[in-house]
């Protein structure tokens, strides 16, 4: 689905007087391959380059060096930027800053309108995705009247309406309460089961445990990749990059079981240790 080869990116920064200043390196030689249907979590401290990486996946940013392939094609080779945006949906942190429409259906329609979709198809697609995200019957509601979780589900619906093959979530649950977070994660699990590729940027360790693969970033570099269990087994390195371990892993470490990601696994390993 995604293939990044030696990708680097630098932001232009301004000095205090507003004049052109230096360039800040946000990504340094990142190489990563994400297969279709996989669920990846991208971990890293603030400023580690996670969001910059996410924005490369649907061409919002183009690498200053290296190449990014989406569905086997270099992002610069897409003749119409809309074709790339249709393949990869992206949902951001604050739902209030990404909802465009003055009603639920109008917001879902936004991407489809941009793609020039015919009205009957648009209407059908809106009905389908609102059903999918559990917002059916709320078509005419003002998004301001929705709860945080509902707003974020609406943002996901807006991306899903374009029928993407992958969905990127840039800390999409960080502003939600536990109920809202659970709503969004339940929805993502369903979508993933239906074959959607999910790339989730998060600081929440319980969300990382849902992923098939984890990529850890620090100072613009990809430090390691692996399954959650493989990653959390390297607690010393993670702490060096200011990444906190999940509570269950911390408990396991205290009890002498490294890389534990679920309670059942921890109990099983403790039993095995007791038998030994």
């Amino acid at each position: 689905m995604f293939k990044l080869e030696n990708v680097s990116y630098a932001y232009d920064t301004e000095d205090a007087s507003g004049q052109g200043g230096s360039r800040r390196q946000a990504l340094c030689g990142v190489s990563l391959q994400i297969k279709k249907g996989e669920w990846w979590a991208i971990l890293g401290a603030n400023g580690s380059g996670k969001s910059t990486l996410a924005r490369h996946l649907n061409g919002l940013l183009l690498p200053t060096a290296g190449r990014v392939e989406v569905c086997g094609r270099e992002v610069r080779d897409y003749a119409r930027v809309q074709d790339l945006r249709r393949l990869v949906g992206i949902v951001f942190q604050n739902p209030d800053n990404q909802i465009v429409g003055n009603s639920v259906e109008e917001d879902v329609a936004f991407g489809l309108e941009n793609l020039g979709t015919a009205r009957p198809v648009m209407r059908r697609r809106i009905g389908e995705v609102l059903q999918m995200v559990g917002l059916s019957g709320r078509e005419t509601v003002d998004p301001a009247a929705l709860s945080g979780g509902q707003k974020q589900r609406l943002a996901i619906a807006g991306a899903l309406a374009m029928q993407p093959q992958a969905l990127i979530l840039d800390e999409a649950t960080s502003m939600l309460d536990p109920v809202g977070q659970a709503e969004v994660l339940d929805l993502l699990q369903k979508l993933h089961e239906d074959g959607l590729t999910v790339v989730m940027i998060t600081h929440n360790m319980s969300e990382v445990l849902l992923a098939d693969k984890v990529a850890v970033m620090s100072e613009g570099r990809l430090m390691m990749t692996g399954t959650p269990a493989e990653i959390f087994a390297k607690s010393d390195e993670l702490q060096k990059w200011h990444i906190e371990l999940p509570l269950i892993t911390q408990l396991g470490n205290k009890l002498g079981v490294a890389g534990c990601t679920d309670l059942d696994g921890l109990l099983q390993k403790l039993e095995e240790m007791a038998e030994d």
């Binding site: 919002l60 930027v81 951001f92 941009n114 793609l115």
Partner: peptide, 10 residues
Amino acid sequence: DLAIAMEARA
């Protein structure tokens, strides 16, 4: 943020 979100939706 909104400008980026709009761009992301084509």
